[in-house]
Computed example of a mutant assay.
Amino acid sequence: MRIEELCADVLMFVGDAYESVATAFIDGRNVLLIDALGSEADAQWLRAVLCDRMDLSVRLIATTHFMSDHIAGLTRFPEAWVMAHRHHRHTFLSQNRPVAAFYREPDLVLDNMALRWGRHQLRFLFNPGKTMDHVSVDVPTADLAFAGDNIVGNIVYLSKADPLLQRAAIGRIGQFGRRRIVGGHIGVFDAPVLDHALHYLERIQESVVRILLTEPMDEAPYRIKAIRIEDCIAPQVEPTAFEQEWHQNNLDVIVAQSVFALDASLAAVRSAA
C-alpha cells in the first residue's frame, strides 16, 4: 500500500488489492474521497491514515463506478455521505464477483454536477464506458482527470463492456485537456496514457477480428488466448506486471463472452458486399 501527494491538498492512496486507487481532497480537516479501495484491509488502512494518523474527517465519498474493488471503504466511513450515478445498482449487480458487505446505498444520486471542495472545483461527468454508471471527474484546479476503470493503466479491461462505449469514454476524458490522469488502478499517469489505452483497444480488436474471420471455429479460442500484449501495447510502452496480468484476463474474457464477435460479423458482411 502506498501514498502519493498529487498536490499539497490532494493525496492518492493505492491499495494492495487490485492496486485499486482512492484519492483524498483535503479542505481543512474535511475530506472528499474519490473511490474507496478494493478490500477490507485496504479500507481499514485508509481510515487509519486519514482519521487516526492525520486527524481528518471524511465527509463525502464520490464513486467513479460501483464495483466492489472500488467501494470497500464505503462502510468504513459511516459518517460520510456517498455519491454515485443513478445506474450504480446495474453496475454492482453486473459484476462477476459482487461483495455484498461492501455495498452501501448512496445518499446522493447524480448524472452530472459540479462541486467546490476547498480551492478545487470538481466536475462530475456521466461517462459510460467500462460500466453503465461510470463517472469521470475533471479537476482543472489540480490539472487532474479521473478515468475510473475506463482505462487500466496503458490498456483497458473488456469484461461485460461495450468496446465502442469505452472508446468514446476515453475520448471524452481526453477532451478535458488535463496533464495527469488518475486511473481506477495502479495510480496516476501522464495524459498520453489515454492514447495508449485507445491504441491497445484498437490493436486487440483488430487481432481478434482477424482470427475470427480467418481461423476455423475450433481453433480460434486458442489463437485468441495466444495474443501477446507486446503486439497490442503502444510503441515504447513497457507493460507492467499488472497490465500483463489483466491482458491475460482480457483474452479469457474475449473467448468466454464473445467480445468482438459482432465486430467480426459486421466485417464479414462488409467484405462480402
Rank of each mutant, 00 (worst) to 15 (best):
R2A: 14
E4P: 04
D9P: 09
D9R: 04
L11W: 03
V14I: 14
S20Q: 12
T23W: 01
T23I: 08
A24V: 02
I26W: 12
G28S: 08
G28D: 03
N30G: 07
V31I: 11
V31P: 10
I34E: 07
L37S: 09
G38L: 11
G38P: 08
E40G: 06
E40L: 09
L46E: 02
A48S: 13
V49W: 06
V49S: 09
C51D: 10
M54G: 05
D55A: 13
V58R: 00
R59K: 14
A62Q: 05
D69F: 14
H70G: 07
A72V: 10
L74W: 04
F77Q: 00
E79Q: 11
W81N: 10
M83K: 02
R86S: 08
T91I: 01
V99A: 01
R104T: 00
E105L: 08
D107G: 12
D107E: 13
L108I: 14
M113P: 02
A114L: 05
G118H: 03
L122G: 04
L122C: 03
R123P: 05
N127G: 04
D133R: 01
V135D: 06
S136G: 06
V137Q: 00
V137R: 03
D138Q: 02
D138S: 08
P140Q: 03
T141Y: 04
D143Y: 06
L144F: 00
G148V: 02
N150H: 01
V152C: 15
V152K: 02
G153T: 07
I155H: 00
I155S: 00
Y157H: 13
L158I: 05
S159G: 12
D162Q: 11
R167V: 04
A169G: 03
A169K: 12
G171C: 04
R179H: 14
R179V: 04
R180V: 10
V182I: 04
G184L: 05
D190P: 00
A191W: 02
L194I: 03
H196E: 06
A197M: 01
A197I: 01
Y200M: 05
R203H: 11
I204N: 10
Q205T: 11
Q205D: 03
I211P: 09
L212A: 08
T214D: 11
R223C: 14
K225A: 07
K225N: 10
R228M: 12
I229D: 12
A234L: 04
Q236D: 15
E238G: 07
T240V: 14
Q248V: 06
N249K: 15
N250G: 08
N250R: 04
V253Q: 06
V255D: 10
V255M: 08
V259S: 09
D263G: 15
A264H: 11
S265L: 10
A267Q: 12
A268M: 13
V269E: 13
A272T: 11
